[in-house]
Structure formats: structure tokens, C-alpha cells
């Protein structure tokens, strides 16, 4: 199969996946008691008023008709409008919250990968030694940290005591860079606004570190075991016999081979983080998708939940495709 055929097949496979997901979410949301109208109208709302709103939102139609209507709109690229507060277009709601999540995901992901790779490599190279034991303890300790607690401690130390970093939000009010990508760090760079960049980075440090530190524990163990396995293989011994320097062996040969299983994990984790790191977002008042979706589920905002699921499914499919393509780059034995 050529690379192009592979990519097309993968893209086609996402269609039934999204359809199944969407149908499930559609049914589950409607089977559960509670509807968006009752969740938001004032307590004094009359039954007539509630009926009127349900009619406006199409909630009085038979379930199958609501489903067909929704799919029809979806095919036209219309995710619909939110059913509560402001009744804004779902795509606009996603675009308002998703960049924040993406920024935090990238921040947390980078921290976790850097810390995880560094500690994992140390443990893998020095396997059996004191450093290895320390790194293994590190891995278990950080992974078992409770995010709100860690976050609060960091807020206390760096925010309240040292006054070094802000405790919540994405940027100081008024410093928002012009919206280009929605990623404040990137937009500040593109607009060459140094004060915005500083503020955005300062706000990003604690949440990214909190999230990244906890997740780095997984990489430590994974990199360690993968690296140990590769270092024990014949080709590494052959490299050593040919007199290659240790650093070249490690970076050019061992690490590249050890990265395959880690890449899978990275892809999965990145996709998972995109759904929003609810605890981190709540602790740092980060206006991302995680807390937004939890709130909308509580209020049964059907259209927003469905729209976000479709959006995510597409994004996750894309990430997993990219990961598969990166495999081929890292490991020449893999061909599509």
C-alpha cells in the first residue's frame, strides 16, 4: 500500500468512527434525565414557557427526527448553536476554549517529555545503580501526586510567597495579543509583543509544570525499560566493538530504536490531554475545554457536547495519523 492510499484509508475510517461516537453521545444525553431548558430557566418559569423553549430548540420533536436534523446540519458543516447561555454557535465556543487547551497540552506535554526522557535515560543508562533507583522512585512519586494538591502547593510557593508567577488565568487582563491562532504564546511572538509573551509564558509555567511533572513519571519508566532492552541488543555491542563514542551510540542508535513504543504513548497522551486536563484547568482557572465540557454536560447542552465530540474525534484521528507517519520516519523498517 502506498503512503497516499494508507492516509486516504485512515481518513475514511474516521467517518464510521465519528458516526458511532456521535450516535452514542446523542442517545446517552437524551436518555439521561434532565434537559438544557430546565437547567437554565429561572425557577419561576411557567410550563408554557418551558414548552416554548423546548419547541424553539427542537427538543419536542421525535428523537429520530432530532437525530436526522442534527446529522443533516453536520453534513453541511454546521455544528449548531449552544442550547444555553447566549446560544452561541458551537464552533465559536470550541474556538474560544480549544486554543487554551492546546496551549496547555503543548506546555504540559513538553514538560512531561523533557523530564520523562531525561530521567528515563539516566535510569536506563545507569540501570541497577543508585541513580536508577532514584529515578524509579521519582517516577512513582510524581505519578501518584494529586494534581490539585501539587498545583496548590506550587501556587502557594511561586505565587503567594515568592510573587514570581501568577496563580490563575491565561494572561494579564489587557495584554491579550491579537487573535491569530488563539495560542497566546505564539500570537504574542507573531505580533512581536514582548509584554504579552512574558505574561502568557508566566501564566503557562505553573499549569504546564504541574501537568507535565505528574505525567513525566510514565515516560521515565517507559524510556528506562525500552532503553535497557535496546542497549542489550547485538547491534549496540557491534557499535561499541567498532569503537563508536558512547554519546553517538546512545543518541544515534539506541535512543532512536527505543523511541518506538514511547511514540505510541506520546500520541495517546497528547490526544487524551486535548480533551482537557480538567483538574489542572480548574486549579489554575485555565479557560480550556475540560472544565467547559464538564459544565456543559452538567447543564445538558446537547449541541455543544455533540459538536465538541465530533471536533475531538477528528482531532484525535489526525494526531494518531501523524503518530503513525512519524513511526515510518523513526523506524525505516516500517513502510506503508
Amino acid at each position: 500500500m502506498s503512503l497516499r492510499a494508507y492516509v486516504i484509508t485512515r481518513i475514511l475510517m474516521t467517518i464510521p468512527m465519528i458516526l458511532i461516537l456521535l450516535t452514542l453521545v446523542f442517545l446517552v444525553m437524551r436518555v439521561l434525565p434532565g434537559n438544557p431548558v430546565i437547567a437554565i430557566v429561572g425557577m419561576k418559569a411557567s410550563p408554557q414557557y418551558i414548552k416554548k423553549l423546548e419547541h424553539q430548540l427542537g427538543l419536542d420533536k421525535p428523537l429520530w427526527l432530532q437525530y436526522v436534523d442534527y446529522l443533516g446540519n453536520l453534513l453541511r458543516g454546521d455544528l449548531g448553536r449552544s442550547m444555553i447561555w447566549g446560544k452561541r454557535p458551537v464552533i465559536q465556543e470550541i474556538m474560544d476554549h480549544f486554543p487554551a487547551t492546546l496551549e496547555l497540552t503543548i506546555g504540559g506535554f513538553l514538560v512531561s517529555v523533557i523530564l520523562g526522557l531525561a530521567t528515563g535515560m539516566v535510569a536506563g543508562i545507569r540501570s541497577g545503580g543508585k541513580l536508577d533507583a532514584s529515578m524509579r522512585i521519582y517516577s512513582i512519586t510524581v505519578y501518584s501526586l494529586f494534581i490539585p494538591l501539587l498545583g496548590m502547593m506550587l501556587q502557594l510557593v511561586f505565587g503567594v510567597w515568592l510573587h514570581l508567577l501568577p496563580v490563575g488565568g491565561r494572561i494579564d487582563p489587557g495584554l491579550e495579543p491579537p487573535a491569530i491562532t488563539g495560542l497566546y504564546v505564539l500570537d504574542s511572538l507573531l505580533a512581536l509583543k514582548l509584554d504579552s509573551l512574558t505574561s502568557a509564558l508566566a501564566h503557562l509555567v505553573l499549569p504546564s509544570f504541574t501537568l507535565g511533572l505528574v505525567l513525566s513519571g510514565i515516560y521515565t519508566r517507559l524510556v528506562r525499560s525500552s532503553l535497557m532492552e535496546v542497549l542489550g541488543q547485538d547491534f549496540i555491542r557491534a557499535c561499541k566493538a567498532r569503537g563508536l563514542p558512547g554519546r553517538a551510540i546512545l543518541f544515534r542508535h539506541a535512543l532512536k530504536n527505543a523511541l518506538i513504543p514511547i511514540l505510541t504513548m506520546m500520541g495517546l497522551q497528547f490526544a487524551l490531554l486535548l480533551a482537557g486536563a480538567v483538574l489542572t484547568e480548574t486549579t489554575f482557572s485555565w479557560p480550556g475545554m475540560g472544565t467547559f465540557l464538564v459544565e456543559r454536560i452538567t447543564y445538558r447542552d446537547f449541541t455543544t457536547i455533540q459538536g465538541s465530540i465530533v471536533f475531538y474525534a477528528l482531532f484525535v484521528a489526525l494526531v494518531s495519523l501523524v503518530v503513525d507517519l512519524v513511526y515510518a520516519y523513526v523506524d525505516p523498517r516500517i513502510r506503508y
Binding site: M152, Q155, L156, G159, V160, H163, P166, V167, G168, G169, P173, G174, E281, T282, T283, F284, S285, W286, T291
Partner: peptide, 20 residues
């Protein structure tokens, strides 16, 4: 007057203590 919206009551308290 700048109003900042927080998601968590403890973060709100810490924001006051940190001077934000």
C-alpha cells in the same frame, strides 16, 4: 474595574494573597 473569573474558590483566595 477589571473582573477576573476564576474556576475554583481556593485559587481565588490564592490570587488575593499573591496580589493578582
Amino acid at each position: 474595574v477589571v473582573i477576573k473569573f476564576y474556576k475554583d474558590a481556593t485559587t481565588l483566595r490564592l490570587a488575593l494573597e499573591s496580589g493578582e
